[in-house]
Design a protein around this nucleic acid. Structure first.
Lengths: 307, 307
DNA sequence: CGTTCTTGATGCAGAAAAGGTATTATGAAA
DNA sequence: TTTCATAATACCTTTTCTGCATCAAGAACG
């Protein structure tokens, strides 16, 4: 195999036209150069690819087989080159995105959707994980960017604020609290609570329950649902009240009233973090995208309060 | 795309070793030549494929993608070259084989099986067809070789005798004919006949029925089976007698007696025929194979009588 | 801390390959 | 026969590739 891609291109041109002169013109080379290139190819293969005389040219049986194979090879090569270049420009590749429960319940889905519109070549690989897990995975280069919730005190990480969640109390419009402007935690001491799924919402309750303890009570759980939609549904039925975040309340249907909790000043910050050193191109593109979204006011540290 | 297969081979060598010097030795070129070639490839792609310093070489992300694609391309190219060469040598390709009912019931299956053992690269494409159809298809280059039965008087065809079939009368061992050495056609005038499938056995009956007519009777058909096994099975049950060929009787199970027909001297000759002018390599190889088999006495014009 | 070794890159000259122009040989068409 | 078109060949130029010698920069080692 001494021949190159050049020979293959020449061969395919002749195989299409079955005419050396016309093919040579399409290839922008002289006819003799083309003749000799084909001769070299045939000599190298040890196979006659064209049956030719001065008056006609046609493919031999072996020539037909070679043409089909050569076409496939050339197409494959072009596809590979194209993909390689797109990877190089960051237009293709994979982005491994970690997320916490809060991220996935908040801005993340829309964020990923928007990003994919702008970068359809980049495959998003979402990985669920709590904050500590994500930080370890970032370090082990198993994650490109993480959406983590809560304070992160690790150096060498780039970060952008995505959303701040403040707990709110959600009650049905027929509830005795419905007319009030706001609540205090201790007002909830005797209420029935609808609880989120313990496994998926662990982080939220790790944050909330200490607050309740500080207010002198433990929430009395009367119902548990599988997800936020379920929680809101049970509250809608009057099964009890719940504490969720503004973000999640945005998905609520009618008949519900959200009440701020006066004595809970803390907010839960969800951030995007990535390893500045190991950042690959798709990561950088995603960060750039995040900055655009922040500039547009779509995401950031301001609460997305429902008007 | 100015690079050639040479660049790809060089690239893959470096991608495997991640060491320019060792790779250059494996490629039997000097290290500077290899460095240059890789530089040209990268410049042509506009993509850095290797991250390198004086102390280490590793693939970039784009390099990994290019390596995988390039491997596939090179493998595809080698496979194509190999197939092309085998086609050229007649070791691969397709052989379109026509056959009549007699051929397929006789020597043909074993013949094709043996041929495929010796030429596993050649795909056999069997086409059923009566003699006249096969001759037309040979002429139209829709068939490479035909197994035809009966006299063929067409010029320009190569031919080899495959088998001669003489009709025999088959009866159950309890039949009154069973003790006889031979029969004459007219003996059968009052017998019940088991008939082969009209469609598949048309040629045989076109040959046999005129003989019966000459003997002054028409066979009285009492049963019809789907194939030769079915016919023999019905004869085994005592449903009637039948006339088949020696070839087919070779497949019979026990309890049956074959009786020669004294007054039927004609034999049915099955021949392989092909177009000498248009013969492609696989065809010639098959003819050569036939000649070998004839030399071995496996096939030919001698009747394969059951001892 | 310097020495030595190894690695990849570079300069240059010779070799090889590819290309172009002019021409030839051979069928087909007029 | 003449003319036309085709593919092949001859000959020379240009481009590309290669090897040798060498350089620059880390790594290994005493």
């Amino acid at each position: 195999m001494k021949f190159g891609l050049r020979h293959i291109r020449y061969f395919l041109a002749v195989a299409e036209d079955l005419n050396f002169r016309r093919a040579s013109e399409k290839l922008n080379i002289s006819q003799p150069a083309l003749s000799r290139a084909i001769q070299h190819l045939e000599a190298d293969l040890g196979v006659q690819l064209f049956a030719r005389s001065q008056s006609f040219v046609r493919l031999t049986e072996a020539g037909v087989v070679f043409r089909d194979g050569a076409r496939a090879v050339l197409n494959g090569m072009e596809a590979t080159v194209d993909l390689t270049r797109r990877i190089n420009r960051g237009e293709a590749g994979a982005l491994r995105v970690g997320y916490t429960d809060f991220a996935i319940a908040g801005a993340l889905p829309e964020l990923l959707k928007q990003f994919r519109l702008g970068q359809p070549g980049i495959t998003i690989r979402p990985h669920h994980g709590v904050t500590s897990t994500q930080l370890r995975e970032l370090d082990d280069d198993k994650l490109d960017i993480g959406f983590v919730t809560g304070p992160v005190r690790q150096a060498g990480l780039g970060r952008r604020a995505i959303q701040t969640d403040r707990p709110i109390c959600i009650v049905h419009e027929s509830h005795r609290f419905a007319q009030r402007k706001s609540l205090r935690l201790k007002d909830l001491a005797d209420e029935d609570f609808v609880h989120g799924p313990a496994k998926d919402w662990a982080h939220f309750y790790d944050y909330l329950f200490p607050l309740c303890r500080r207010a002198g009570f433990m929430p009395r759980i009367v119902q548990e649902a599988f997800n936020s939609v379920g929680i809101l549904g049970l509250v809608s039925c009057g099964m009890g009240i719940t504490i969720l975040t503004e973000t999640i309340y945005n998905f609520a249907s009618g008949g519900l009233v959200a009440l701020p909790l006066e004595d809970v000043p803390e907010v839960m910050l969800t951030e995007a973090v990535w390893n500045s050193d190991k950042a690959r191109l798709p990561t950088l593109q995603f960060v750039e995208f995040l900055d655009q979204q922040i500039a547009l006011g779509q995401i950031g540290a301001l609460p997305l309060a429902r008007s």
